[in-house]
Amino acid sequence: MPKVSMTVNGKAVSGNIDSRTLLVQFLRETLRLTGTHVGCDTSQCGCCVVHVNGTAIKSCTTLALSHEGANVTTIEGLAHDGKLHPMQEAFRENHGLQCGFCTPGMIMTAVDIVNRKGNKLDEQTIRHELEGNICRCTGYHNIVKAVAAGAEAMAK
């Protein structure tokens, strides 16, 4: 079986995998990092969003082997020293979730939005940028509030 090596949340990891292994399967099943979720099989829901070399992608729609040598950050990589990332904290503060299934993808996408668009985000920008993330519970209002608050908190 082919071997793949990459850095995940700052740690060097590798594995011998079937070519078919999607990045999300490598993360969840080989590395047991189950924070990244799979919510669909049509590449539409965004539950699986992770950062690869600093850009947000859907880990269910890419092969692990395509990311040889890459630097990957998952939801598990955001908190430091037992302290939540400001975007995670904002989701908690604003009750930006109900069942929580979409939340890892929402947060990884939200951090990517801030990286690209800065810390002052208006509602329209947030809603537009969240087009690739589907939530079946919340109706989005509190997610949008959380992203705006998290974006501001990330400036501090």
Binding site: I57, K58, T61, T62, T109, E129, E131, G132
Partner: peptide, 9 residues
């Protein structure tokens, strides 16, 4: 096209 994550790939 699609959404930001799709456009990134």
């Amino acid at each position: 096209i699609g959404d930001p994550a799709v456009r990134n790939r």
